[in-house]
């Protein structure tokens, strides 16, 4: 109750920003809107980015908390920087890489890039080819490393995220509904 919370809906996960509350004037207009992006496209990019993080996280066998953290970082970053200037896919990779470290389940950057490559091929229904470790790969990798640093910088290292999921489960226990598997799973 001391912490005001701001629930937001995306990617079928409700996240509450507990430790960093974004002031209203930052929420709108967003940096992307200021760069001339329309709000619908921005919302789409946010949703796609979060879904990418979720899918990649599953393929990387990351705990769900890492995906949730990655998504929060991703969302927060784009309230400070614009989609026009910062490639959504690279930032999404940086966020999941960063989140895997924050949640103490680090994954190799190469695996992250691999998984994103795989998802892309699936999406465009291409024949699945393994990632070629060429100059292109090296460039992507450097971009992700750079992007990770930028995310840390923009968020001022405030990257610990308190997720509401545990609290929901706790409330359910108080309400003696913990046996209701459907509700618990929804949390």
């Amino acid at each position: 109750k001391q912490h005001p919370t701001l629930p937001r809906d995306f990617s079928k996960v409700i996240l509450t920003l507990d430790n960093v509350l974004i002031p209203e004037d930052k929420l709108s207009p967003t940096p992307s809107l200021q760069d001339g992006l329309d709000s619908e496209t921005e919302m789409d990019l946010r949703i796609i980015g979060c879904e990418l993080i979720q899918t990649a996280g599953i393929l990387l066998k990351l705990p769900q908390v890492a995906m949730a953290t990655g998504q929060v970082l991703f969302q927060r970053f784009y309230y400070s920087k614009s989609f026009v200037k910062h490639n959504m896919e690279v930032v999404a990779m940086a966020c999941i890489n960063l989140a895997s470290k924050i949640e103490e389940s680090p994954r190799r950057l190469r695996d992250v890039i691999n998984v994103f490559h795989h998802i892309k091929q699936l999406k465009y229904q291409k024949v699945i080819h393994p990632l070629v470790l060429d100059q292109n790969y090296i460039n992507t990798k450097n971009q992700v490393i750079k992007s990770e640093r930028r995310v840390l910088k923009e968020l001022g290292f405030c990257v610990h995220v308190k997720h509401p999921h545990k609290i929901i489960v706790m409330f359910l226990q108080v309400l003696e509904c913990e046996k209701n598997a459907k509700l618990v799973q929804c949390a």
């Binding site: 924050i102 950057l109 840390l152």
Partner: peptide
């Protein structure tokens, strides 16, 4: 692998 995990944490 980018920024070391210990530094971030």
């Amino acid at each position: 692998e980018g920024m070391p995990m210990s530094a971030i944490r």
